[in-house]
């Protein structure tokens, strides 16, 4: 007979490696970054050891930077809402489908995820840019030389196309968890389809809407390649700006501060929205 290992020890052994990875790859760099954000920047020596809030103050007092944060937030909110509105019907249809084409449908949703966001942004450039598909159609109709690039529209479209599959897949799995009989019960009790949606499907799908929304919102807040390639020089979002401070200007302390501001904003909004969802869910 083998001796039984104490349960606590087994658990420690199993959880240990993952904990180490998280500690080394997430907590340590974050701590380092937090420390950097308090340092001072010097043109010749770059980073100077200090303990100052000036990087944060510079961000919140300069309308340019707060403007970029606001733009980022707006794009993230708009794309998240669009993902929800456009994704829900697709997710619902997929979840309730009993057709043998269902798996093909799911595959079609997943397929874009196989292509990196950079490649897809390049694709959008071909569609929206000068000499692109939209331009060609416009030209055929008698107009000439139109580019939809370097606009909030192009960036929102790009982010939307990247995030939509995540939203659809999240919602689909949650809707599949809602007993179809519950909807039929609502039906038989006299709820027309819109009212059934409002009183039964929506409240029951709320956890999925929350999860999907948070996921897509975080992705949009941190989008890099899409705003970089489709937004151009004039349309600024947080992640490309952070990169420029870091790599081009070599201003590590300020870049670290931007990183923290972006992270904290995203975290705060995420926590607030999930609390909101939970409260509404419980109130029902």
């Amino acid at each position: 007979m083998t001796k039984r290992r104490p349960e606590g020890l087994t658990a420690t052994l199993l959880i240990g490696p993952a904990t180490m990875v998280v500690l080394l790859s997430l907590v340590l760099p974050l701590a380092l970054l937090a420390r950097y954000s308090m340092n001072r920047y010097d043109r010749r020596t770059f980073m100077v050891e200090a303990f100052t809030p000036e990087n944060y103050l510079r961000f919140v007092t300069d309308p340019f930077y707060t403007g970029v944060l606001w733009t980022t937030f707006s794009i993230a909110i708009v794309t998240t809402l669009l993902c929800l509105i456009l994704g829900f019907p697709v997710a619902y249809k997929l979840a309730r489908s009993q057709s043998r084409w269902k798996s093909i449908g799911v595959l079609l949703v997943i397929l874009p995820l196989f292509i990196g966001s950079t490649v897809r942004a390049l694709g959008w450039m071909g569609v929206l840019g000068r000499g692109g598909i939209v331009d060609a159609i416009y030209g055929a109709l008698g107009g000439s030389g139109i580019s939809l690039l370097n606009s909030s529209f192009a960036v929102a479209l790009g982010i939307l196309s990247i995030n939509l599959p995540y939203m659809i897949l999240t919602l689909q799995s949650v809707i599949e968890g809602i007993d179809a009989r519950v909807e039929e019960a609502a039906d038989s009790l006299g709820a027309s389809p819109p009212r059934r949606f409002w009183h039964v499907v929506l409240p029951l799908a709320l956890p999925g809407i929350g999860t999907g929304g948070i996921l897509v919102f975080i992705l949009a807040m941190n989008a890099y390649a899409t705003p970089f390639l489709l937004g151009g020089a004039r349309f600024q979002m947080m992640a490309p700006m952070l990169y420029r401070e870091f790599a081009v200007n070599n201003n590590w302390p300020f870049a670290a501060a931007i990183a923290f501001i972006l992270m904290l904003t995203t975290l705060t909004l995420t926590a607030a929205s999930s609390l909101l969802v939970q409260r509404r869910y419980r109130a029902h």
């Binding site: 009989r181 519950v182 039929e184 019960a185 039906d187 038989s188 709820a191 059934r196 039964v200 029902h284």
Partner: peptide, 28 residues
């Protein structure tokens, strides 16, 4: 359509609305 038929249906899985109380279920 089913919502115009006024047929009360009782399901094998009960199909109660999980997000509603007993009273809210009954008055739905």
């Amino acid at each position: 359509p089913p919502y115009r038929r006024e047929m009360g249906m009782v399901f094998q899985s009960y199909a109660l609305f999980p997000h509603l109380t007993v009273a809210q279920n009954i008055t739905f």
